[in-house]
Simulated assay, not measured.
Amino acid sequence: MADHAFAGIKIRNLYKIFGSSEAAHVDAVKNGLSKAELNDRFGHVLGLKDINIEMPSGSIQVIMGLSGSGKSTLIRHINRLIDPTAGEVLVDGVDVVKMAEADLREFRRHQTAMVFQKFALLPHRNVLDNTLYGLEVQGLDRPKSVDIAMRWIERVGLKGFEEKYPNQLSGGMQQRVGLARALSNDAPVLLMDEAYSALDPLIRMDMQTVLLDLQKEIKKTVVFITHDLDEALRLGDQIAILRDGEVIQQGSSQDIVMRPADDYIANFVKEVNRGRVIQVDAVMTPVRPGRIANGATVRGETKIEDVLKIFARGDVQDIVVVDPRGNPVGEVNLARVASAMVSAH
Rank of each mutant, 00 (worst) to 15 (best):
G290N: 01
E163N: 15
D92S: 14
R109P: 13
R142D: 08
L211A: 10
L308P: 03
H124R: 12
D237M: 02
A23C: 01
K35R: 09
G172P: 04
D206G: 12
V62D: 00
R259D: 06
L140T: 10
L235F: 00
L334R: 15
V332P: 09
E271C: 03
L74D: 05
A7N: 09
G300P: 02
D141H: 12
D40C: 04
V29G: 03
V177D: 08
R325M: 12
T302S: 06
Q254D: 11
N79W: 12
A338R: 15
T209Q: 10
F107R: 07
M150E: 13
A120E: 12
S343L: 05
E162L: 11
A232Q: 07
K10I: 11
V320S: 05
S339A: 08
M205A: 08
K49I: 01
H25M: 11
L233W: 04
A24P: 00
P324S: 11
G134P: 09
Q208W: 01
K270Y: 09
T112H: 05
D83M: 03
H25D: 07
E136A: 07
M173N: 09
Q250K: 04
V316D: 10
V45F: 03
S252R: 02
G32I: 01
E246T: 07
R313P: 02
I148D: 13
D3Q: 12
L202A: 05
G70L: 03
M258V: 01
A195C: 04
M284L: 01
K16I: 00
D237C: 04
I9L: 13
A195P: 11
V342Q: 11
S145L: 11
N185G: 12
V26F: 01
I153R: 15
D3M: 14
D262V: 09
I63N: 06
P286C: 06
Q175P: 10
Y196Q: 11
Q175I: 09
L14K: 14
K309Y: 08
N267Q: 13
M341A: 02
G300M: 04
R109H: 06
E194Q: 13
S252M: 03
R142Q: 06
Q174G: 05
K118S: 11
V146Q: 05
A232L: 08
N39V: 03
Y15K: 02
D27Q: 09
F107N: 06
V298F: 07
Q238L: 11
E37I: 07
E301A: 13
G93N: 13
A261F: 05
K16S: 01
I11D: 01
D103T: 03
N294S: 15
Q279F: 09
R291V: 07
E301I: 11
N167L: 15
E37F: 07
L66D: 03
V257Q: 05
H44S: 12
L158I: 00
T285L: 09
I60T: 02
T131R: 10
A36H: 02
L235S: 00
E194M: 15
A23G: 01
L46G: 08
A187P: 11
M205H: 13
